[in-house]
Every structure is written in structure tokens, then in C-alpha cells.
Design a protein around this nucleic acid. Structure first.
Lengths: 325, 325
DNA sequence: GTGAAAGCGCTAACAT
DNA sequence: ATGTTAGCGCTTTCAC
């Protein structure tokens, strides 16, 4: 492998000079620069990140914690994070957090001296180790009540969704929340729904906020079961707001299996706008999250210099209308 | 951070001894071992992988090359690879290969001295740099005609699929291949179909092997368009074999949009058995790939010692019957 | 059975 | 404007 030393020798300068031209900081005469650049090309020099990382005492790996990778929403994020990270010379690694071994995962992160951690497994992750990460100078995003955060602001999207339901003449929406009932009130979607439904002539019956045990049970299953239970309960409803598109997928199927016509009998709205929700039957109307902005924010919060511990970046949402309302 | 040196001092031994007990190789007196173990615990020592990697001249990162992360099949693989890699103390990083910057990605891999590369972007990846990787001792899987490989063996699955079609009384299947027509004949699914359809009383008309430009166009779109074209062509068909579940998703929708009833009018079979294909409408009958075996094979081929360059591991498939046939 | 020491390749403080 | 050099923390040979 070609080292900086090799380049320096070929260019007839010192490694420090090579370092200067490569990093672009410090004074270098244009002749020296030219020689170095020639040598770098000729030798096809490539920096050894292993060494650089050791020196910096920090790797160029951004860790992404997920409960499971099969959540397509995470993948939208991961995709954009990889893209953004590359611009900044970092790579992103996935870490699966399946409850019991959280501690071991964190050990792993520490051992690898990742440069930051994006916690997508907010329903699972244990925050007790936050201090260790701080001490080691590793930034955590979405890992605790303090520290930088990105929050998806559902205001706009929910507003449009409720308006859309109203326009369709709906009055009795149910909310397929899917998560545990003690978590539901904290969710911005649910909260916004409760606080604003009335304004759109929508009844909002706490009984119609359906909780489940996502993410232990997969989203489509949760959606199916919850919707099935709702149908069997005979409680009247004419529309469904779903926490995620994947839950909506399950709900759609339950509705179909029980003979409901969509959107004639019931309107359905999801959240996320996954790339294939247009292929659901019927194509799903859904609250789109600016996933690229969200993902970029994660990376930026980890890599940028001027990030304060109390930074919060908000990500926008908007309704994408298709055929399910 | 706690270094090996710290541990050595506390235990009253040398770093070499600490190294011996930690690695489990070499002679260590049981007293020394006990003291070291005590110190490791007390100090909460954690190995710094950055340093270890530099020493080994190789990182503990397995690179996974993908065209885009939104393919759920990749995510099934990624999930299992992360799991397997963790057992062997490695982490997996995703790298997006969007055609034009392949070279840059490879530079990245080299620069990071990843311990191996799993190429999932077989329709996009450039193999010309294979030699460099070999020289640097980096293993590539599925990157070239030589080198270790894992091949998904569709024999069993296709056999069952064709039998299933026959049982359903179908005779005119179309094959939604989705990939470019020059690639199709090389695909094992297509190949098996051609060679064995007759045996099941299935006509196999080359005109009914529908090609497209996946992965440039996303799978569900390709599935939709191809199916739509087929319908409009008025060519008779009574069943669909789809290259992937996501293509099947698109095809299902096209069929539905044109008023076909499934499975009454046409039977549909996919490939992959993604975790949510049971929620398609109707639930999709599909050829399941042993994704865990596939993923583990990738990791093992990269990390295990006794891997020969011509190793090929075969992964099994089998039909999962649901409601679309 | 144990310890000393030489790097791995890079960066940056310091000296010139 | 350029060069020298001291580590970063680990592994491993070699000497005791």
C-alpha cells in the first residue's frame, strides 16, 4: 500500500508538506504543491483511514441503531444518511438492538469508537449509558431527553389530513396507533389529532385510539389485528388514521377481508409515504415526511461543529393524496 | 479511556501478558490471569478497535454494496448480516452505488480498508477493480466471475411453483422478469422456467417473458408497467410468475386496476417472501429464499479462514402458498 | 511464563 | 514555507 511517506519521497518533500496539500490547510509553495499532486496521482495514493482514525481517536463510522431493519421507513432514512455521510467522508453502520443485548451493542459502539450514534430504536433503547458516550465525546441523537434531537413536525400534515377527512364527509375517525397505550399520548400525531379533531367536525373518542405492542409485533400485523378488533367491536367508524404506512397496509387488508370498500365505506390515511404506498390497494393517501431532511439532519447533528446540546431540528410533513380517502 | 497499559499496570504485569489473557492464546499463569481479569473488570476495559485495526491493517467493517436501500429484500439480508457479523466482532456498513460514482465508492472502501465487500448491486457494479482488492487482501463476494459466491438455488422453489400452477389448472403463464432482456436468460428463475415449464403442461412463450429496466426503475413500477403492457397486448395469459415480490406488488395492482380477479382470473406467484407479502391483496404465494442462510453465507465467506476462491454456497428456496394462486 | 520494544500510517505541535 | 518528531493503542516477535 502507498503511504504518505512514499508520496513525500517521490515528491522530494516531507510528509508534513504532503499533509498540508492534502488537507488544504497551511502554507505550501505552488511548486511543492504541484510535485505532491503529481506524486499522489502517479502513485495512486489513498489515505489510510485506519491510521487517521486512530490518530483522531475516533472513527468515521456513524452508528445507526434500529430495532429491526425490516422497517422500510428506516431504510429511507438510512439511504439518505449514507448519501449525506459520504459527502462528509463518513460511513454508516447498522446496529440491531434487540432489547436484551442493548448493553452489548453499546459496548460495541464504544469499542469501535464510532463518531456518533443515531438512535432510531427509540422504543427499545436504554438511555442509561448516555454519560459514558458524553465522556468519550460521542454524540447521541434521539437518545435521551437532553442532547440534540430531530423531531418530525406533524402539524402541517395532520392539519391537511383532518381537512381531507372533513372534505370527504367523515365524522368518526379511529386512530390506529399501534404502540403501547402509555406511549400514545406522547406521540405528536396522536396529540395533534386529539387537540384538533373537533375543529374539523371530527369526533374523537379515546376508545377509538387503538394501541398495540409495536414494535414487538410487526407493523402490518398490528394494523391488521387492531383493525379487526375495531370491526368486531361494532363501534361505528368511517375513517382510519394510521401511525405508519405499514400499519395502514395491515388495516387495509383487514378492512378488505371484512368486506369493506375503500374509500366508499371507510377512508384510510397513513403516515410516512414509503416509496411503494402508491401500490397499496387502493393507493394510500398518506402524510409524507421529508425523510431526506430528517436523515440529513441526523448526520449533520453528528458531524457539524456548531451543534449545541439543545439543538432541535424540525422536519416538515405534508399530505399526499391518493385514492384511499 | 482505559488502555491495555492501564490494565497492565493495575494488574502488575506487562501489556503482553494482558494481551495473552485477552486473546486466550499463549501461556499465562493462572495467578496472572486472575489479576488481569480483575483489572479488566474493575477498570471496565474495552479494546480500542481503531488501534487493533491499524495494527492488523484491516478494519472490522464489512461493506455491503447496494443500488438503493429501498429494496426490502436487501434489508432482510442486511439484518441477518449484521447479526452474523456481530458474532464475529464485525460491523456492517452500507455503501450506495449509483452507477456513475462506482469508482469513488471503491476508493472509499479501499481507504477504509474494509475487511470485505458483499456486492448486492450486481446489476450496477463495475468489476474492473477486482485486482486491486485482491492485492490488498480484501475479499469480494459476488463481484466477478471468479471469487467466492453465493447463489440462490431456485430449483426447488420453481419446481413447486410450476406444480402449483399446474394444480390450479393454469397453462399460459407470463414471466414478469423486469430486468433487461440481455440479462434475463442468465437468471436462474427464468432459465428454470424455460427448461421445465413444458413438463408441467405450461406453455412457455418467449414473448411472455417480460423484460424492463429494473433496477433503474423501481420494482413495483416495473411490475405495474409490464403487466399493463401485457394486458393491453391482448396476449392470452392465465398466470404470472414475478421475479420479485415487489414486482408482484406492482403487477397485482395493474391486474386489479384492469378489473381482473385474483386468483380467479389469473394466478400470481412472486419471489423472495418478504415479511409483508402476506399483506398484499390477495396474500401472495411466493418462492421463499432462505435469506438468513444467504446472509450468513456472505459474512462467512468474508470472515472465515478456509474459504477458497472457488467456493460457491447454494441457498435453498421453497414455495410458500398463500392466496394468489 | 513474562516483558520490552518495534512498528502499523497518520497528524500536528514545534522547530527551523 | 518546510521538515522533524512524538505519539494514538494495539499486537507480536524476540529475548530473558
Amino acid at each position: 500500500m502507498v503511504t504518505k511517506q512514499d508520496v513525500a519521497e517521490r515528491a522530494g518533500v516531507s510528509t508534513a508538506t504532503v499533509g498540508r496539500v492534502l488537507s488544504g490547510k497551511g502554507y505550501v509553495s505552488s511548486e511543492a504543491r504541484a510535485k505532491v499532486e503529481e506524486a499522489v496521482k502517479a502513485l495512486n495514493y489513498r489515505r489510510n483511514n485506519l491510521a487517521a482514525n486512530l490518530r483522531k481517536r475516533k472513527s468515521n463510522v456513524i452508528a445507526v441503531l434500529v430495532e429491526d431493519l425490516l422497517n422500510p421507513y428506516y431504510m429511507h432514512l438510512a439511504e439518505a444518511m449514507v448519501e449525506r455521510a459520504k459527502e462528509k467522508n463518513c460511513i454508516v453502520s447498522l446496529f440491531a438492538v434487540k432489547d436484551r443485548d442493548v448493553r452489548q451493542v453499546l459496548d460495541d459502539l464504544l469499542s469501535n469508537r464510532v463518531c456518533g450514534v443515531v438512535n432510531l430504536a427509540m422504543f427499545t433503547c436504554d438511555f442509561s449509558w448516555y454519560d459514558i458516550f458524553l465522556e468519550e465525546g460521542i454524540r447521541l441523537i434521539n437518545c435521551t431527553s437532553t442532547g440534540p434531537k430531530v423531531v418530525v413536525d406533524y402539524t402541517e400534515g395532520m392539519e391537511q389530513a383532518l381537512a381531507c377527512l372533513k372534505r370527504a364527509g367523515r365524522t368518526r375517525p379511529a386512530f390506529v396507533a399501534g404502540i403501547e397505550s402509555w406511549l400514545a399520548p406522547g406521540d405528536l400525531r396522536v396529540k395533534y389529532f386529539f387537540e384538533n379533531a373537533a375543529r374539523f367536525g371530527l369526533q374523537c373518542d379515546p376508545d377509538l385510539v387503538l394501541c398495540g405492542n409495536y414494535p414487538i409485533v410487526k407493523a402490518p400485523h398490528v394494523g391488521y389485528e387492531l383493525c379487526e378488533k375495531l370491526i368486531r367491536s361494532k363501534k361505528p367508524f368511517d375513517s382510519l388514521l394510521c401511525m405508519t404506512d405499514m400499519m395502514a397496509l395491515g388495516s387495509l387488508k383487514a378492512l378488505f377481508d371484512y368486506g369493506y370498500k375503500i374509500p366508499q365505506d371507510v377512508s384510510v390515511i397513513g403516515c410516512d409515504d414509503l416509496d411503494f404506498t402508491g401500490f397499496f390497494q387502493p393507493a394510500l393517501t398518506t402524510i409524507a415526511v421529508d425523510k431526506k431532511a430528517e436523515a440529513y439532519a441526523y448526520v449533520d447533528l453528528i458531524l457539524d461543529d456548531e451543534v449545541s446540546d439543545r439543538d432541535v431540528v424540525r422536519v416538515n410533513t405534508k399530505l399526499v393524496e391518493r385514492s384511499s380517502v
